[in-house]
Every structure is written in structure tokens, then in C-alpha cells.
Design a binder for these strands. Structure first.
Lengths: 115, 115
DNA sequence: ATAATTTGCTACTAAAAAGATAGCAAGGAG
DNA sequence: CTCCTTGCTATCTTTTTAGTAGCAAATTAT
């Protein structure tokens, strides 16, 4: 199996430093990682529910991301479906402010006509 | 030119919703986006300095990311080199707590021998 | 018990993005 | 002028993502 979630202290995609923050950025910097954490923050979801909320991301990618996030102790799979672990919830609490900020960002983006 | 930074309110890679948070996640979910913001937080850097600090990411990718981040109003290019805009600094302030958290995450990761 | 549906995937292929390397034009310093 | 540095572009290879089909196991309905 070709599956290597970035682990702090190890070699990972695009990051040879092994610094925790870089391993984290490597993990979060993959498609749908952030989106998955965001969608799971509310309550556990089944694979297909999650897929629906992530704009029907392909099962290939969704499954790969879920494996990585589980191996990274951020997500687990219980009887309710996929959900955030305690660590995952901690991380989400850091992520939550991005929601509000992004709206402000979008506004300034519209003001600035240069795009 | 094939270059499409995700814009809130528009169609973007992997995100058809146009919701600001999804546009932001799309932008940040590209390789080295988070790392670049992290490295620029301290002070402006030249292209090559930045490249060095990002583990010698290829100029192809670095330049693509910088274009996107500039178009997204998070980074600009002045006489000192590349630096964070005001918006970029705001975003960094949200990102900063990840540094500390990632260290804790790494610790728990080591404790958990399952990997 | 049987049939239909849901769930969590895997396989395969195509397209897009990232990575690696070479090198060049413009600007400044000596 | 010559030698660096800077900010790239071009080209090519490898990896990742996207898109679609479908299947085995578990659950629900009849």
C-alpha cells in the first residue's frame, strides 16, 4: 500500500525537516483535509454523508484522507460513522476562527477590484 | 496562463460552493501555502531565501503559490522582497497557535505506539 | 428467509498538480 | 565590463487528484 501520512519526526511529502508544524502543514495541505475536519466538527458522519458534504469528492481521495487523518489520531470511526477524536476537536477549535475570518476576507476581496 | 487562485464566490478547484471558508481551504490546501505564510510571518524574504526556508521547494511551485497568495491579497512583493499583507498577517495570527499545538500533537503521537 | 438498500470501500483510467533540474534576462556591485 | 544575485520560465518526470464503475458486507424492509 502506498500510504504515508506525515508524521512528526519523520520524512514526509515535501517536508524533510520532521518539525511538527511542517508535518501538520503537510497533512492539512492535502486536498480536502481541512474540509473533512470542518464537516466532521458538528457530529459523526457516514462515509457517504461526508462525501456528500464535501461536494462529492471521489471515494478514492476521501478514503485516502480518512486513512491519513485516522493514522494521525485526528479522526476515528465508531458506530456513528466517522468523527473527530479529542485531538481532532482540539485542532478544530483552532480552525474554527477561520470561518469568520474568511467572510471578512471575501468582503475585502470584493472591494479590491483588481481581480 | 493556467493559474486560478480560489476566489470566494467563484468556482475553484475541488470546491463548487463558492463559500469563503471553502475557497480559503482550497487555497491553503495546496502544497506549501501554509508553509509560505509561516515563513513570511517574521519578515519579508527574497524569492530565494524563501525557497531555502521551504526546504528548497521547486521554483515552479513556489512561484505558482506566490502568485496565488498575491492574488488573494495575503502576500505582496515590495523592496524588501516577499512579505505578508495586512490580511496575511491577520491570517497568520490565526495560524500561529498551530505551532504550539503541533508540538503537543507530536508528543501524543509518540506516546501512541500504534504507528 | 429473501430481497433491496446502504455502507465502506477497491480498481481502473484520465487529468492535473507537484517535484526536479537547467538556465536566462534584468538589476546591482565592484 | 564582469561577476553575483534575484526572480523567474521551460521542460520533463513523478505523484496526486478526479471521475466513474462496481462489489462485498452489513443493515433494513418485506
Amino acid at each position: 500500500m502506498s500510504f504515508s501520512p506525515p508524521k512528526p519526526g519523520q520524512l514526509v511529502r515535501g517536508s524533510r525537516s520532521g518539525k511538527p508544524i511542517m508535518a501538520l502543514f503537510d497533512l492539512l495541505g492535502r486536498s480536502w483535509s481541512l474540509g473533512i475536519l470542518w464537516q466532521l466538527s458538528d457530529k459523526p458522519l457516514t462515509f457517504r454523508e461526508l462525501q456528500n458534504r464535501c461536494e462529492n469528492v471521489s471515494p478514492t481521495v476521501l478514503n485516502r484522507r480518512l486513512k491519513e487523518l485516522r493514522a494521525s489520531l485526528l479522526v476515528d470511526h465508531g458506530s456513528q460513522g466517522y468523527g473527530l477524536t479529542e485531538l481532532g476537536q482540539e485542532l478544530f477549535s483552532l480552525l474554527e476562527p477561520f470561518g469568520r475570518w474568511s467572510i471578512n476576507w471575501a468582503d475585502r476581496f470584493k472591494q479590491d477590484g483588481s481581480n
